[in-house]
Structures are given as C-alpha cells and as structure tokens.
Nucleic acid binder design. Structure first.
Lengths: 357, 357
DNA sequence: TAATTATAGCGAATCGTTTCAATAAAACAA
DNA sequence: TTGTTTTATTGAAACGATTCGCTATAATTA
C-alpha cells in the first residue's frame, strides 16, 4: 500500500481507483455491486475490494445521497419524550429501523405547535425519507395535518387516527381495551364503579368511553353519573397526575361510595392511587383500580397496577413496516393507499384489582 | 411567477437564478449572506429573496454538505432508552441542540456491544459532526473507548468518566450525593442503616460508596457489614428491580433490624420498597428509604420516593455545550483539551423518609 | 484627465458519487 | 471468413450548492 492520502481529507473513490489501477466508475460498480458488476471478473472485484479496505475507504454519504436522493434516514417527531408511553414506542420503532439499516432523527415537540412546525421544517430540509409522528397525547388539529401532507413524503401517525386522512396510522383498539377493563372489574363483582375519563378533546377518551358504554349495555350495568368525572382539557402532561389526584379527591368528598375506579390511563391511575392513599383507602382491599397503557412505572408500583396494555412495541414495529413500504413504493414511483392499522390491547392483571369482599 | 419546475424534482438554485435574472452564484451569496453579499445592493437581495420564496426554494442539504462538510447533525448513542434516566437526559440534550439548530440521530445500543459498534459505524458513515454517548449503566470498557476515539470526531460521554481519556465527559457528583443522602438519614436520627450497593463493576457504585464511607467517618457512624449487600453484576437493567427485591428480602430474613435503607438508585429502591411492603413493614413509619437519580417514576410512587437527584437536564445541556465547542473548534482546526465536568447532585426530600420515632 | 478603488455580478471549478453511453476485446455463430 | 453477442472497462455527464478569481462598471482620489 502506498501512502494514505496525505492531508486531512478522507480517502475517495478516486484514490481507490488510482491505487487499484481501474477507473472510478468500475470501483463504484464493484463496491455497490450494481447490475453492471455482472460482467466484472472475480479477480478484478477482489483486487478492488482489497485496496478499498486497505485504504480504509468509506464512501462519502453526502455525495452518495446527492445522486441517489436517498439517505436511509427517517424523522421521528414525538410530543413529549418524558412520557413513558412515547419511550416504549420509540423502542419498538428503533428495533425495526435497525433491521432495515435506517437511522432515526429525533425531534421532541414539547407539546408546542411552533416547535412541531419548526422541527417538521428541519426534517423536510434534511430530506428524511419518511416521517413517523407520535401523536398519542395532544391535539393534532387539521392544520398540522395539512403541514404533514405538504411535505408529501411517506408518513405514519402513531396513536391517533386522522379521520379521512391520506396519512397512514397505527392505533390501539381503545374501545376494545376499555371494554375488557370494565369486564374485568365486573367479573370481580364490582358494580359501583367510578370513572375518571380523559380530556374530552382527545379522541382516545371518546373511544375508551364508548368501550365502557358498550360493556355497560351488554351486561346491563348501571353507570352512575355521579361517579363519572373528566380530566380537564389541558396541555401539560405531567399535570395530568395532579389533576387526577385532585379530581379523585373531589370524587371522594362527595361520599358517593364506589368499590372500583377505572382511570383514563396509567398516569391518571397514579394520581387516583395517591388520593385514595391519602384518604386512607386501601388498594385493592377497599377499592380496585385499573389503568390503561401499561407504561413503564406501572409494574414498579406497590401494589403493581392492573391495566390494559397497549402493544407499544408492536405499534412501533407496525408503523415502521408501513413506513418502509411507503418509502420503497415512493422510490419506485408507485403510489399506495394509506393504511390504518388498529392493534388489540391486552388486559394485564396485577395487584390493584381484586374481587369484591 | 412562471410555472414551477415542471416534473418531480425540487426547485434548485438555478431555477431561482433563471427566474430572478441573476447567476446562481449570486443567488447563493445572497441567500447565505456570505461575506461577498456586502457588495450586493438591497434591491437585488430583495428580488432574489422574493423569487426564492415564491418558488418555494429549499437548498438541497446533500449538495450543501458535500461542499461544506457540515450537516448540523450529532449522533446520540444510549444504552437503553427505556431507562427513565436516559429519557430525562435526552430531554436535556434535545433542548440544547434545538437552540443550536442541531438535530440528533438516535441510536439505542440495548446494552449490547455489537449493536453499539454497528451504530457507531453507521454514525461515522453519516459523518455526524459530533457524538454524545450516554453510558450511565453498563460496562464501557477500554475497547469501546478505543472505538470512540478512532472516529476522531468530538465526543462527550455522559454518566461516566473514562479515566485518562481524551474524550470529554459529564458526570454527577456521586460521592457528594451519597454523602448528603446518608447525612439526611442520619439527621433524622437513623443509626441502623442498611445499604444496597450497586454492581461492583460500575464506577458510580464505587463513588457512591465512597460518599457513604466518608460520611460515616466524619460522623463516627458505624456501618454494620451485615447490613450491606451488593447488587449482582449483570446486564439486564429491568432485572435490577427484581434483584433488589430479592436481596432486600434476604436482608430481612437475617432478622438484623434496621430503620432505614439506602439504595444504590431509584430502581433499586423500588425493588426494596416492594420487599418491605411484602414483609408488612410500613414505609416510612417503620423504615425510611432513600434512592438516587430521581427518575421519572419516583415522584409518582405512593409514598413518593425521597432521593438524590441527578441534574439530568443540566447534564444534557452541559454535554451539548461542550460538544458544540468541540465541533466549532474542530471546524477551525483548533484542537481543544478534553473537559471533564462534574455536576452536583441535589437531595430531594419526599415521603419515604421520616425521623425515627 | 488619468489612475485608483469600491461596487456588482458572473463563469467555471469543485465536492465525491453514480450511471449512461461508448468502446474494445474476446467468444461465438453462420 | 464475416458478423453478432457477450464480457470488461471507461470517460464524461450529471446531482446541487459554494467559492475563487475575474471582469466591468461606477465612484473616488490625485
């Protein structure tokens, strides 16, 4: 091997060409084994590969992308990375992307629209090949949607289905999940059940409530309006726990007794749990509690939270597979219809529910 | 405005040039306001800017990077994104990067060395301008270090200081934190204190233990060897809670009484909490508990965990600022010495500690 | 008025790849 | 032998932006 390219710059394909005695085009063909490499005799291939390795050649990805218009990068925009729900989905996404040799660019919108838009802009500038948006929480309104479609790159939304949208989505079956949560409480003998519903503006609130209503109808269970409260529509995720705490306290003050409480999600359940503890009510002996999501802390609680699990890993994986399909279709100039996938939720029985005594 | 560039391709600088009647070079100079733009009259600037906007021109970042060798992207490699510790630091990183208009590429090594290496490779291929490694947990041995330096791009390690390394780091003052944790228990009157130490292989385990010892010496507190147990050296993070649970149970079986327990970290504390609950020991009435880290779930617990907070936001920010400095220095061909910054930890008193009755 | 200096703008080269069209030699068929 | 394919390789033209050096005015100074 002769001397490495002297000064700072990295080894280029031309260095390999010169060193191996072939033309740059040949080197390129061999190293990518492009269609044309069919005609290149093994000896040549070996020679080129050897010198490439010897020189420590790494193709310059900018040049490569400049021609191919591809960069094996997707953008992931989420609305709050400190939300454990996001974290688990992110893990699912990461696993799948890794297998496809894609790398994610991460953006956290902090639940702020301006930030979301800025990030979206940055991603488009970077020509990410696709976009994954985690919109579990929050109010993704029509404008954001428009923004999204403006970029006209393949996009999948996770956690929220945009009605009549050309953008694919992956969601959980909220209604079914809530149905089975309530069924679980019912089967344990609970009849006086309190509900802390999610913020009205959230589509998942509505869907979960539909599940509750459907079960109630199916089994002729009375839902006492006095035992139904709503979380306020607000932005701050972390306040969710505090709100739930406060609301549960109010529920308790009413002296309307209940033997079980179904929370909108796990965070809400944590708040309720705290309120019950403060009131000296033992969980699950005196009151059962069930959440929704199965976020990371839930199984750490003492007692561990019974909940309905969102298959976040699978959701991430599913989103990625839809996205990659979209990307490859786009690369081949095929258009493909939006896909809306809804995954089943799974009841996870732990320690906060028990049969009525 | 004439017709947009007809077929698929995006608007290029030449389109803007043609449309505005100036040369591409001029357009470039104006749009970036390069030094030369000093001579360009405002009228021209305005014209060019207007047509650029009108045409919806976005510079192609690949071409740009190809020349400038910069892409405003840094790589972030972490070892387990489901670890809430990582999440909070990530948030800190993200916030600071955003301000500098950098975007992170995210890689999760899943605590696997092979994965780490693969990801590192991918990042280097992509020519990220800098690298942030979150190495809180886990055994970053000498080889990984070598790998890191091979890339010879600015790098900052968070959560772990590599002895005698040319790579910058940001860590927390483990020793001081542990010192104040124990001081807190002591001030509440606790004298019979149990310790669940971290895995021996972890440098933070050692540092925290040093803090304990130092306090014990300073205040002539006896550390009962029977009350000191170690978490096993193992990889699986989530098993950490289970290990802590098991070990605390064993501690309890010994019938060696204690009034307070200091855990290696919050996760460990959660495990201990569970073991105590199972044994019917009330926290904090019968036994106080203190953790370390202040990860997200800690304040959600009932009772909420008293702990020593790592300033993760600040750590992320600090790491980013060091990194950006490194990047700009590198861009100007200056070399700069590695920086090792150690941030103070902060005692957060919540509900799991109380004075001895 | 002539010489100098600012001011405006452009052309061409460059960054490192990929790909297309072209060429030339070798292998085969007629 | 001549003509056609197949095999092996290459030069040159993109891809889209930046930048250096150059020219041509206009403004200023001597």
């Amino acid at each position: 091997m002769k001397k490495q390219k002297s000064r700072k710059g990295a080894v280029t394909i031309r260095d390999v060409a010169r060193e191996s005695g072939f033309a740059a085009s040949t080197v390129s063909i061999v190293l990518n084994n492009a269609p044309l490499s069919r005609y290149i005799p093994p000896a040549t291939k070996a020679r080129i590969q050897k010198t490439a390795k010897g020189l420590g050649y790494h193709p310059n990805i900018f040049a490569k992308s400049l021609r191919s218009k591809r960069n094996h990068t997707v953008g992931v925009i989420l609305f709050d990375i400190t939300d454990p729900y996001c974290t688990l989905i992110l893990r699912g996404i990461e696993k799948s992307l890794y297998q496809e040799s894609y790398l994610p660019i991460l953006a956290d919108a902090h639940n702020e629209r301006a930030r979301f838009e800025r990030y979206l802009e940055m991603m488009l500038e970077r020509r990410v090949e696709g976009l994954l948006v985690l919109a579990n929480w929050l109010y993704l309104d029509i404008n954001v949607l428009a923004d999204l479609e403006r970029g006209k790159i393949p996009t999948v939304i996770i956690g929220r289905e945009l009605e009549s949208s050309a953008t694919s989505s992956v969601t959980v079956d909220d209604e079914g999940g809530a149905y089975s949560a309530l069924a679980h409480l019912y089967s344990l003998g609970h009849r006086k059940i309190a509900f802390v519903r999610g913020p009205k503006a959230l589509s998942s609130s509505k869907a979960r409530w539909r599940g509750v209503q459907r079960f109630a109808r199916d089994s002729r269970l009375d839902l006492d309006p006095k035992l139904i409260v709503d979380l306020p529509d607000q932005i701050n995720l972390n306040a969710g726990v505090d709100d739930a705490f406060r609301i549960t306290e109010e529920l308790l003050k009413q002296k309307k007794s209940f033997t079980a409480l179904m929370a909108y999600d796990d965070m809400t359940a944590f708040g309720a749990l705290r309120a019950l503890a403060k009131a000296g009510i033992k969980v699950p002996q005196e009151c059962s509690i069930i959440g929704f999501d199965d976020v990371n802390p839930s199984h750490l609680m003492v007692p561990a939270l019974t909940t309905v699990r969102q298959p976040m890993d699978a959701m991430g994986a599913s989103a990625v597979s839809i996205l990659i399909d979209g990307i490859t279709s786009a690369a081949e100039n095929r258009t493909v219809a939006a896909i809306h996938r809804k995954l089943p939720a799974e009841l996870v029985i732990r320690e906060t529910t028990q049969s009525i005594s």
